[in-house]
Design a protein around this nucleic acid. Structure first.
Lengths: 235, 235
DNA sequence: TCTAGTCAGGGAACGCCGTTCGCGTCAAGC
DNA sequence: GCTTGACGCGAACGGCGTTCCCTGACTAGA
């Protein structure tokens, strides 16, 4: 089974296929192993560091060998997101607590993405028919419908929530990466940001100036919770 | 004034600086011109095609020359987004129609982004202190405050809306690029998508199967309007 | 008018990237 | 034990962002 077929299988309903073990290697290298190692690289060095060469090195082989398991880089990205989605637990829909359930699923996805800095970029570029991603969609949709949300609204809200989660994680990952970068001297912590906002000319930025504190507020995931809440409560 | 200083100026409040005309060229090449040409390239061939070499060729020069006007690719990205933000008109806040005003600003930004396929990727990677971006933030914040939204909610909502606009545009750009790609045979139009959803095993995807129509619904920017509405109406 | 000094422009090269080709190797079948 | 075929992967390709440093036109002073 070549990688093209394997990819197709991930987007088609059908039987799970056991990875046939390759023949030559001491410990034979499977897709599962490739994905595991890729996630380790991302966790340790960030998504930007995940290159085919870097991954091959981590697997103690050459870049060409990866193409026996993966169509291309985009396919690898899909596999990574698929793996993260697979790990998200989806509760049985409960009409009494559906808002909390949705919040929990979003938070679970968020935490998974953030554990692997920058992967969310891959999530944003993905086609929506990967079965693992669809599984999360299925779960969220079921919860929303159980909550009495109209089908069309539920479908669109799922979409919007998943999109927001990815975008939020990307933003946070970038911000974190920057604050870790010592040589980027113009990176700002919150105090510096407030000072900047307050130093803006009153003529063109009166509102930002006056509300510098609010603009930079939000510890942890308060912003995230706020926005998800905004969307959920509107349904 | 070197590009580093020029970039710093874009993030600092201060006087506008006229581009000093370079000396040697027949028609001398300014930052403004670089940005114009870059946007032309993006409009015609998409953001992915915007490389330093491609841009240099379009300007009839070598890649090295661009670095006299721009710190690096990321800086060029900022300039592009800055330009698009600069063109967005911000209405004087009107408490009676603030929701429509916000909707209009979001739509204006969306249309600008979509005119240049893929630029929204640059927007997602940007630091939030660019003055042009801040100008849009200022305008939206003023409208929300005029609408009686609490300052902290207004600040966070601005953030969320801008993030959503960028993410939505990125998704749409990618989808459009894919449907234009003839060789990507596995790309699906809506009918094909519905058929796929309905072909899923009922055991694991009951909800998606049943609501395939709703999941794929949404002509034009109906989804966009829905989500922006969801956020605005919750305030 | 001539000349010396200055500095932006850009050709060429560097070290990466994703991807492909095809060679050498080894296991299975006869 | 030989043949055959499949498979791992070294090496190479074209293209990326970026930098080095030479070139040569312009400016200013004599």
């Amino acid at each position: 089974m070549n990688p093209r077929e394997r990819r197709a299988a991930r987007h088609r309903a059908g039987a799970e296929v056991a990875d046939a073990r390759p023949r030559r290697r001491a410990s034979p290298l499977t897709v599962e192993q490739v994905v595991d190692t890729a996630l380790e690289v991302v966790a340790a060095e960030g998504y930007e560091a995940l290159t085919m060469r870097r991954l091959a090195t981590a697997l103690d082989t050459g870049p060409a060998s990866l193409y026996a398991h993966v169509v291309n880089k985009a396919d690898l990205d899909e596999l990574l997101i698929g793996r993260l989605c697979r790990e998200v637990e989806l509760p049985a829909p409960d009409p009494a607590t559906w808002r909390e359930q949705i919040r929990a699923v979003c938070a679970a996805l968020r935490d998974r993405y953030l554990r692997y800095p920058g992967v969310s970029r891959a999530a944003l570029a993905m086609v929506p028919t990967d079965l693992e991603v669809l599984r999360v969609n299925e779960g969220m949709l079921a919860i929303l419908l159980a909550g009495g949300v109209a089908p069309r609204d539920a479908a669109w809200a799922c979409d919007a929530l998943l999109l927001y989660v990815s975008a939020y994680c990307l933003e946070v990952s970038i911000a974190r990466a920057r604050s870790g970068d010592a040589d980027a001297a113009w990176v700002l912590d919150r105090d510096e940001l407030v000072r900047r906002f307050e130093a803006l000319p009153a003529a063109t930025f009166p509102t930002v100036r006056r509300h510098a504190a609010e603009l930079t507020a939000g510890e942890g995931h308060e912003r995230f919770d706020f926005t998800v809440g905004l969307m959920i409560d509107g349904l």
